[in-house]
Amino acid sequence: MEIVKVYVDVTAEFSKEGVLTPKSFIWKDGSVYEIQRVKDMRRAASMKAGGVGIRYTCVVDGRESYLFYEDNNLWFVEGKTGA
């Protein structure tokens, strides 16, 4: 299976300092996933799916995953084709 960008809707908040923090995202099947914690935030490329932006290392359902915020103001996660 190929790794691709899966664009998702994200609920996020801006702090008064201007920091953007994702809180949850909606998967393509409509499931809502709460982000328990953001462990890291840095500018980085998705080595698996391509693309670059702000990479958030998030804890979702107790597992670490990446959520990317691209320069075009879209959010994506790395997903497998057919998933």
Rank of each mutant, 00 (worst) to 15 (best):
T81E: 12
G18Q: 03
P22W: 05
G82H: 07
E70D: 12
N72H: 04
A83R: 07
F76A: 02
L20A: 07
N73H: 08
E70C: 13
Y66P: 00
D29V: 06
I3F: 05
N72S: 13
Y7M: 01
T57P: 02
K39A: 06
V19W: 01
Y66G: 03
V52Y: 11
D61Y: 06
V4E: 09
C58V: 15
I35F: 06
E17N: 09
E34Q: 10
G18W: 05
I35V: 08
E13N: 13
A49D: 10
N73P: 00
R63L: 09
A45R: 11
G82S: 08
V10M: 05
E78Y: 01
E2I: 08
E17T: 08
V4I: 15
P22D: 06
E2S: 13
L20E: 13
S31V: 11
F14K: 11
Y33I: 00
D29T: 13
P22F: 07
S31E: 13
E64M: 08
G18C: 03
K39M: 08
S46N: 11
V59W: 03
D71M: 05
A49W: 07
Q36R: 07
E34H: 02
Y56C: 04
K23H: 05
V52H: 01
L67S: 02
M47L: 13
V19Y: 03
W75F: 15
G51P: 02
V60C: 11
D71A: 10
I3T: 07
G53W: 05
K48T: 03
C58G: 07
V10Q: 06
V59L: 13
G82R: 07
K48L: 12
I35R: 03
D61I: 01
A49Q: 06
S65P: 00
A45F: 01
F68Y: 15
K16D: 14
G50Y: 08
F25M: 02
F14H: 09
T21P: 02
K80M: 11
D71G: 13
C58N: 09
W27A: 15
R37N: 12
T81H: 01
